[in-house]
Design a protein around this nucleic acid. Structure first.
Lengths: 170, 170
DNA sequence: CATTTTGTACAATTATAATTGAACCTTATG
DNA sequence: CATAAGGTTCAATTATAATTGTACAAAATG
């Protein structure tokens, strides 16, 4: 089952992939991540690494890294297929779960880095040195607090409802 | 008043600028935009293009483009100073206004592009061709709708309160 | 336990995006 | 109306990030 001639992706699949490539790039992710997610999203069945490589014509390294990243933000779920050594995945279709993953893995750490940076600034200088900038620094503190409060809120707003994929008269 | 020896930026200013450089990069903006905004943010008085160039030691082109972008998202406000031909600006300190600018200038257009892309996909193919992907496409539609609703919500959440810079016993 | 399969790590390469600097408008000024 | 100052534009350069491809590690197979 190794030397299989892979079914090439269809025009529609290509367009769905293009949609996710665009989406990925617009949030600053490599295009290959968008391609990979798009491929999984459009696929009827779980896919393994080598199928991604063959269908998208990208390198092993790209495919491996892309899958790892997508796993890390919960955009791909591992599926166990008996009798196949390869790891298989399917696309997560709940916007909320993916957004949560992105928030927790990428956005929140970044935000915290900024908060730390500011904290160390406040510790590093004498109050007299800070005085002229005091109100400005206070203002950034406020921004950080707002941002921190916003994140869980976005998550809640994106809602748990999205994933309810009840097979409607399929 | 041209050949002035510019006061170099202080250590604290440098750190505030570093904070915004980090912030800019974390949302996918060029580091120079962060530098420029940081400089304005830390400044006590309005600044003009050539002061940005001198203090940050960046090129005219970068400074010009950076200022233009920051204006476009409402992160800089123009200030009129009588007797000086140069355009002066101050940093906007309301998180909400800047977030609104970013949303309107960068995020929303991108979102709409995705929606258009999807719409054209649906028009381009026969229902029979789309059938197998129908529920998936419907799902993306849902994502788009949620995202569209989320934007004004984020804006409202960031609130109008931020800018209330009442000079507290200064 | 040698061999194959699956997946990862990472230096080298390639592609993309940011920055520079010079040419060029536009408006003010004497 | 010639000159200078403020600002923009954009092709060329430089810096950054993504992608490849090879070498490697881990696990299964016979």
């Amino acid at each position: 089952m190794k030397g299989d001639v892979q079914t090439p992706i269809s025009d529609i699949e290509r367009e769905i992939i293009a949609f996710f490539v665009n989406a990925a790039q617009s949030i600053g992710l490599p295009k290959s991540y968008g391609e990979i997610y798009g491929l999984f999203f459009a696929s009827e069945h779980p896919l393994a690494l080598d199928e991604v490589i063959n269908k998208l014509q990208i390198s092993k390294g790209s495919a491996s890294q892309g899958i790892r990243f997508l796993k890390s933000i919960n955009a791909l779920n591992a599926i166990y297929l008996p009798g196949d050594r390869r790891d298989h995945y399917v696309a997560e279709t709940s916007l909320r779960l993916i957004a949560d993953g992105l928030i927790n893995q990428k956005i929140a750490p970044q935000l915290r880095e900024g908060i730390e940076r500011l904290k160390s600034l406040k510790n590093q200088y004498e109050p007299s040195e800070l005085a002229p900038l005091k109100s400005k620094i206070k203002n950034i503190d406020l921004w950080n607090k707002k941002a921190e409060l916003l994140l869980p809120f976005v998550s809640k707003y994106l809602g748990p409802k999205a994933s309810k994929n009840k097979s409607k008269k399929l």
